[in-house]
Computed example of a mutant assay.
Amino acid sequence: MQVWSIANQKGGVGKTTTVVSLGALLAEQGHRVLLLDLDPQGSLTSYFGFNPDEIEQSAFDLFMHPGQPSAQLHADIIVATSVPGMKMIPASTALATLERNISQQDGMGLIVSKTLATLWDDFDYALIDTPPLLGFLLINSLAACKKLLVPVQTEFLALKGLERMVHTIQMVTRSQRRELDYLVIPTMFDRRTQASIKSLKTLKVQHQGHIWDLAIPVDTKLRDASRAGKAISQVDGASRGARAYGSLLKTLGQSR
């Protein structure tokens, strides 16, 4: 199983869209894909029509039963999505309580790693959607992944937020004594605006060697797909957004 975390400590940069779009493309290629929603806001969970405030079993249960990574527990938690071949462990808003209640217990930073280890033969890819802040859940996702994708909106404030994320990556690298393979993904790029063009140029200069050569463009079809609870490739595979995510997946495949 390949494990990718999609993270940024700033919200609204396209994390969930990236998780869904890449996951769906992988599933369409015949891969078995698992999405894991670790964000208490539950954007990924809501994307596929589940209510994070009401869902009975979710990623929260993984942390409540850390010594029981049982097949039955996972079977109860994993749900289908609208994309054939792609399943999901949804989030509940109760995830927000973990930081206060159990984050200091020994071994809790490896719960996601241990969970995915028990599912290793059941899926080819696991994509993790993370909360937009440094904490227990984000650290869990970084400890579990082999590749980190960092979507960054091409606007000035998002660039400042990226600095915090890079600092976190460096911190995790030091603590785990391993290099964390990461790729910055420019998103919401609008070639009609100077602000977007200048931000993209700045990103490429400041993050040379860790940035995707292209960018995910502004595309209303991405919003249409979200509203329909489907992936962009299901709604319009020829759209600019779908083609961009297809290009990104090819880049990720070449860098494995």
Results as ranks from 00 to 15, higher is better:
Asn140Ser: 06
Asn140Leu: 06
Leu127His: 01
Asp76Thr: 13
Thr154Asn: 06
Ala143Pro: 00
Cys145Gln: 02
Ser82Ala: 15
Thr168Tyr: 03
Thr154Lys: 00
Ala126Cys: 12
Met64Asn: 13
Leu149Ala: 05
Gln170Trp: 08
Met108Gln: 14
Asp76Cys: 07
Asp124Phe: 04
Val166Lys: 08
Val172Gln: 09
Leu116Asp: 01
Phe63Lys: 03
Leu148Trp: 01
Met64Pro: 05
Ser113Lys: 12
Ala96Gln: 11
Arg174Tyr: 12
Phe156Cys: 02
Met88Arg: 04
Thr118Asn: 11
Thr118Trp: 05
Val152Asn: 03
Ile139Asn: 00
Gln176Ala: 10
Asp129Glu: 08
Thr97Trp: 13
Val150Ser: 00
Val152Glu: 01
Thr93Lys: 15
Ile77Gly: 01
Gly135Asn: 08
Pro132Cys: 09
Lys114Phe: 07
Glu163Ala: 13
Pro132Val: 06
Ile169Cys: 04
Gln153Ile: 06
Met165His: 05
Ile128Trp: 00
Asn140Ile: 04
Thr118Gly: 05
Met108Glu: 05
Ala75Met: 04
Thr173Lys: 11
Trp120His: 13
Phe156Arg: 12
Met64Ala: 14
Ala143Ile: 09
Lys87Trp: 08
Phe123Asp: 00
Lys147Val: 05
Leu134Ser: 10
Thr118Ser: 14
Val152Gly: 00
Leu137Thr: 05
Thr154Gly: 04
Asn101Ile: 11
Ile169Pro: 00
Gly135Thr: 10
Val172Met: 15
Val152Pro: 01
Gln72Asn: 07
Pro131Trp: 02
Ser92Trp: 04
His167Asp: 15
Met165Tyr: 02
Thr168Cys: 11
Lys114Trp: 10
Trp120Gln: 13
Val172Asn: 02
Thr130Lys: 01
Leu149Pro: 00
Ala158Thr: 06
Leu73Ile: 07
Leu133Cys: 09
Ile102Thr: 14
Ser113Cys: 09
Ile111Ser: 03
Asn140His: 09
Ile128Cys: 06
Met88Gly: 03
Lys146Ala: 11
Phe156Ala: 12
Arg100Ser: 15
Gly161Gln: 09
Met171Leu: 15
Gly67Ala: 10
Lys160Cys: 05
Leu110Gly: 03
Ser103Cys: 15
Asp124Ile: 06
